[in-house]
Design a protein around this nucleic acid. Structure first.
Length: 155
DNA sequence: GCCAACGTTGGC
DNA sequence: GCCAACGTTGGC
C-alpha cells in the first residue's frame, strides 16, 4: 500500500465536503507529474487531505482510494473550467481516481507545525518550490502526521 | 493582493 | 529544441 498527500482548496472542496459526500472523483488535476501519481494510486492507498490557500493551510483529514483512475470527465466538458480541447475520448490526457472519506483529524495539522517537526525533514511537501498538488508520502511520515493530528495542542 | 517559483505555450 | 512570455500555485 502507498501513501499520498493531495491538496485541495477548502473554499472549493474541503474535508467536510468529502465527509458529507462519502466519496468523490478527484478531478481537475492539470499537471502531468501530479496526473502520473494519480494513475499510480491503487485501491486502498491512503491519502492525507491537505487544505491549501486556507487559514491556516494544513492537513485536515484522511481519505483512501476506492476506485482506481478513470479518464477525468471534466476534460470533456466544453465551456467548463477544466475543459481541455486537446483531449479526446480515444486519447484522454487527464485521469482521476475516486477518493473515499476515512476520517477528519481531531486537529488540523498546520503547515507551520509540519515545518517545525524534525522527523518530517524530507517530506516533499516541505521542499522549496514544490507546488505539486499530488505528492507521495512515506509510511513513517504519514503516521507521524496523523499522530500530530491526534495530539492535544499544548500551546 | 503580492510575488516567487514553477510549468506551459508557441514563435522562430 | 530554445527560450521569452505568460499563466498558475499557494504561502504570506
Amino acid at each position: 500500500m502507498k501513501y499520498w498527500l493531495v491538496k485541495t482548496e477548502p473554499d472549493v472542496y474541503s474535508i467536510d465536503d468529502l465527509a458529507r459526500e462519502g466519496k468523490t472523483l478527484w478531478s481537475g488535476v492539470r499537471n502531468y507529474q501530479a496526473r502520473n501519481f494519480l494513475r499510480e494510486m491503487k485501491l486502498g492507498d491512503k491519502l492525507l487531505i491537505y487544505h491549501s490557500n486556507a487559514e491556516p493551510p494544513g492537513v485536515a483529514g484522511i481519505g483512501e482510494i476506492c476506485q482506481e483512475h478513470i479518464p477525468d470527465p471534466t476534460q470533456f466538458e466544453e465551456g467548463g473550467e477544466y475543459f481541455d480541447p486537446k483531449s479526446t475520448t480515444v486519447n484522454p490526457r487527464w485521469s482521476c481516481p475516486q477518493v473515499g472519506f476515512v476520517k477528519k483529524l481531531p486537529h488540523l495539522v498546520p503547515l507551520q507545525a509540519l515545518r517545525e517537526e524534525e522527523s518530517l525533514k524530507g517530506l516533499l511537501l516541505l521542499q522549496p518550490g514544490t507546488r505539486l498538488s499530488v505528492i507521495p508520502v512515506s509510511e513513517d511520515h504519514f503516521r507521524a502526521i496523523i499522530a500530530m493530528g491526534k495530539a492535544v495542542k499544548v500551546s
